[in-house]
Design a protein around this nucleic acid. Structure first.
Lengths: 185, 185
DNA sequence: TGAGGTATGTCAATAACACTGACATAAACT
DNA sequence: AGTTTATGTCAGTGTTATTGACATACCTCA
């Protein structure tokens, strides 16, 4: 059973497989590695958020508003991939708590541009600090070459359709990519 | 905690960090890359699960029961890091739906060893297929060296305390191939 | 100016998935 | 026999998501 129907996807020749590291087992290990790494990766801010009675949704909103100050609600909606009702509940809290400020758009006054207040930036710092520490440590331990490979694989893991857009958003890719920091789509 | 403004974040790292490509901006890019890659990474099985009215919790249970056939309930609880009440609801469904089978332990008859039935294995295949395809493609595009770096960084991203355990669980690390398939923790 | 679309916000209902606490049963250990 | 362990279940709660419907303000275009 462990050999299963899909077991022979890339197992035509033993030698070819090993050269490409693409045995079924290797792929499954990659999947589990993603699971465990991401699990621990998100555990740091989760603990901090408890003190604020916030959840991951708040963290994500704070993170991306910080990364793209002035982003519109629609822009944030698009990045996070949630419904406006979901985002609104979170945003409502953050605004009421004085962590996020809204600015009416100059060109289009229907739009609300979002920014972190001082307090919002403080919380963002506290949330991202342990994550940056974790990434920093992992990068240091693994070394510069490994970091390059890490980023390369992760970039390829992103959906083809959105990769260019996302990498432009993330910034710092080898390829230039289009930069749309304004908040559109 | 330096609660400085947002503006000077990206040059808040030390000189030593910069030598190792560890500017604040680099770290933040790593964080976002994790976010987006994992987001797309989990989107594949999510779509399939909709057809079954199952969620991610079911997927995780199925995945790990498949990886470690004969795992006990307590073992699965430990891997997934949830409460038994949470797991039980999911497990109940999977057992009732005939995807998971229980076996009373021989040595300890209180224990229930879990296995996927034929139907369970079929679903596991369907769920993991697109994820393996995604990882396979990413690995191919990035190349063997990058894959090594990817794994190296991801392994370091895991909590120190559980890294050895998890990597033994995942298997295939550079170190020996001791497999703990029995289901213990 | 009036029509229609856009950006945002809100109300209500629902679902998935996690939590805590309490309790039950069977089996093992001492 | 008494206690602990492994499992299972009932009840209640919370967070985060969903869909659908609807309101308001504003922009655009004919």
């Amino acid at each position: 059973m462990s050999a299963g129907g899909l077991g022979d996807m890339r197992r035509s020749s033993t030698r070819g497989d090993q050269l490409l590291f693409l045995t079924d087992e290797q792929l499954r290990q990659g999947i589990e590695l993603m699971f465990f790494a991401y699990r621990d990766f998100t555990s740091d801010p989760d603990r901090i958020l408890e003190d604020y009675a916030y959840g991951r949704a708040h963290h994500r909103a704070i993170h991306f508003i910080n990364r793209r100050p002035g982003v519109t609600v629609a822009g944030l909606l698009d990045i996070l991939g949630v419904t406006k009702q979901s985002l609104n509940r979170v945003l409502r809290q953050l605004i009421d708590d004085g962590l996020v400020a809204q600015e009416v758009g100059e060109r289009d006054r229907r739009q609300r541009h979002l920014r972190l207040t001082e307090a919002g930036q403080d919380l963002e710092r506290r949330l991202s600090e342990p994550q940056r520490a974790r990434v920093r440590r992992a990068y240091s331990e693994a070394g510069p070459d490994a970091v390059g490979g890490f980023r390369k694989v992760l970039e390829q893991m992103i959906d083809d359709r959105v990769r260019t857009e996302v990498l432009g958003l993330v910034g710092g890719s080898r390829r230039g990519g289009d930069n749309d920091t304004s908040g559109g789509a």
